[in-house]
């Protein structure tokens, strides 16, 4: 039979269907196992916690991480409810597909947990010394490979969204904010510089449009 454009298209579709008819809508067990072998934030946190505090404290690291995750979900729901009310929208695809938002929120939740618990009681004296120096802010942003300025962006919303934070914890988060604004946000790889550049460009355009007298 002569190959017409329509027949060629039909054949291509048929070929694709033949390949995919027996394929699954879900990842195979093999693929799931590859996914499960990926390093995730939970692994990173537990590993770095154990490195800083001592391998005997792995379980404490897991507990701290679980608490951080609970707080992350709780605050995220509260933030979304308040954004829903403020913006009258129910679809948060853009925000919820933003990985930096999630890591920032999780980092803030973990910082609250870490600052609340402080030093594990059963850590040895040497371990305690390491922990006090290594696990305090900005340890969390370093191990999660998060830019300080991105953490800064969630702190205020976090405080507003969680009414049960103690006055001390609010002060602690405020101190983190100050450290970010005073030094950490000005490191050479900070996203702040790009924002300043964009802002200057916008201002430049606005200046050009405005009559000289204004």
């Amino acid at each position: 039979l002569q190959q017409t454009p329509v027949r060629a298209a039909m054949n291509t579709i048929q070929q694709l269907m033949m390949i995919l008819n027996s394929a699954s809508d879900e990842p195979s067990d093999n693929l799931v196992s590859y996914f499960n072998n990926c390093t995730n934030l939970s692994c990173v946190f537990k590993q770095k916690f154990a490195e800083a505090v001592g391998q005997g404290c792995i379980e404490i690291g897991s507990q701290r991480y679980r608490l951080g995750v609970r707080l992350y979900y709780r605050v995220m729901e509260s933030i979304l409810k308040s954004e829903e009310k403020r913006l009258s929208i129910h679809n948060f695809s853009k925000l919820l597909n933003n990985n930096i938002f999630h890591v920032s929120l999780l980092a803030c939740a973990l910082e609250v947990v870490m600052a609340t618990y402080g030093t594990p009681r059963n850590a040895s004296l040497n371990d305690r010394t390491i922990m006090e120096t290594d696990l305090s802010f900005p340890w969390i942003i370093n191990i999660l490979d998060l830019k300080a300025f991105d953490l800064y962006k969630v702190i205020e919303s976090f405080i507003k969204a969680e009414p049960n934070l103690t006055r001390e914890m609010i002060k602690h988060l405020e101190c983190c904010e100050h450290r970010i604004m005073e030094s950490l946000a000005w490191q050479s790889d900070s996203p702040l510089f790009e924002l300043i550049k964009q802002s200057k460009e916008r201002d430049g355009q606005a200046d050009q449009l405005e009559p000289v007298g204004n």
């Binding site: 954004e83 403020r86 853009k94 919303s157 006055r167």
Partner: peptide, 21 residues
């Protein structure tokens, strides 16, 4: 939260900070 200095403008929220409309 009475001692905390809020930096977001009135009517602004986290969506704006993460470039969401």
């Amino acid at each position: 939260t009475q001692d905390y200095h809020f930096g977001l403008e009135e009517g602004e929220g986290i969506s704006e900070l993460f470039d969401c409309d």
